[in-house]
Design a protein around this nucleic acid. Structure first.
Lengths: 209, 209
DNA sequence: TTTATAATGTAAACAATGTTAACATAACTT
DNA sequence: AAGTTATGTTAACATTGTTTACATTATAAA
């Protein structure tokens, strides 16, 4: 991109990049078209040549954001070179770290306002999409090898997900300063959760070894 | 309030009432001063005679909202005529029902944007404020009578709270249509959570009776 | 009762917001 | 070289929260 060119050359991608940089520090509500136009030296309406609306740009961010999120969680769950229990622990840790490192993006991904986009992504056939089916698969694997009790795997995945989601959102929304102690809280949560899910046999043989 | 009076008579309280009615159906972001002024037959700037700003009105809503929230959860936890396990179950159920019945209010109470108000309320001395210390007290009670393991009660309370918070927010933010099955999910969550918290003695004697 | 003062309303104007319409220039196709 | 498409600008809109100057009513003091 040269300076005196009338056409920017790569405005769409640069605006997305700027938007992602922006929500590293500020909430999505504070992202205005002026922020984007100032940072790209264009006018406030230039964005409309590349996105149907401001919301359309945000929807693109959500699609990209879920790819990034899935890339930090799913690979760990799928890595069969790691013992299953450790995979659960590490992926949950990665989940919470992602939320803490990208609080505004995380809330964008799991908030209500753009729920329709999330659900569209989830319903893409043959696609893990947001990491949920990776979790469900790992739970099924645990049930098959006799580690976990044979309950409804979808419900169990929701249970695990909601515990991680709850701790993550309490932390990033500033609930009672728990962020400073989040590692211990996560360990507690993980142990409690896993302990309730393992079979009696495993439990008696000591779960945490 | 008569019709042709220049002064409204009760504008502050009526605006609050209208605002609460509004967020029963719509998110707080959609509440505008025009909504309030139209509903009260006043001008858009009339509100400034009763609140310093729009945010000040919302802060008042949060204070009221936490009273309501606390009133639906804490009394159950404190009612010693009910067995402790049942108190835990019922109060968690009330927690989630509150979130489902008042999703926009719930998100207002626990969101980041007004975290400073929530933390102010929490830090009021000798005040349960938002129900958290009721939970912590109930956990301590459980530890005293030998039902629950003697871990750090604050951390355990956070653990319980985050599980309820996670399930509640996933439900109200439309995650994977889980709302239709929320009662079973709550039972699962409760059993799993309690099972990890009770003492070995209780566990062997059957937890859920 | 009159009169001063405080309380509570309105109207008009602001800047900032997302968006659209009319227009201008660059880039690409043929 | 000419026509078409892509990509930018400027100007205008309605809507937003907020402030200022003014108007009316209510209250208290004289």
């Amino acid at each position: 991109m040269k300076k005196n060119e009338y056409h920017h050359g790569n405005l769409k991608e640069e605006m997305l990049k700027i938007a992602f940089d922006f929500i590293k520090e500020q909430s999505i509500e504070k992202l205005t078209l002026k922020v984007l136009s100032d940072a790209t030296n264009t006018s406030r309406s230039a964005i409309y040549r590349h996105f149907k609306s401001k919301d359309a740009l945000i929807e693109t961010m959500i699609i990209e954001g879920f790819k990034e999120f899935d890339n930090t969680v799913s690979p760990i769950l799928k890595d069969k070179s790691i013992p299953l229990k450790k995979r659960f622990f590490k992926s949950g840790e990665a989940y919470i770290n992602f939320a803490i490192d990208n609080p505004n993006l995380y809330k964008l991904l799991f908030g209500k306002r753009y729920a329709h986009i999330r659900e569209e992504i989830i319903n893409l056939k043959n696609s893990n999409s947001i990491g949920f089916s990776s979790l469900q698969d790992a739970i099924k694997e645990g049930q098959k090898v006799g580690l976990l009790k044979k309950d409804n795997s979808f419900n169990k995945a929701i249970l695990v997900w909601s515990s991680l989601h709850g701790l993550s959102t309490l932390i990033i929304d500033g609930f009672m300063d728990i962020e400073k102690n989040y590692k211990n809280l996560y360990k507690d949560l993980f142990n409690n959760l896993l302990f309730g899910m393992v079979t009696n046999k495993i439990r008696l043989a000591s779960v945490f070894k």
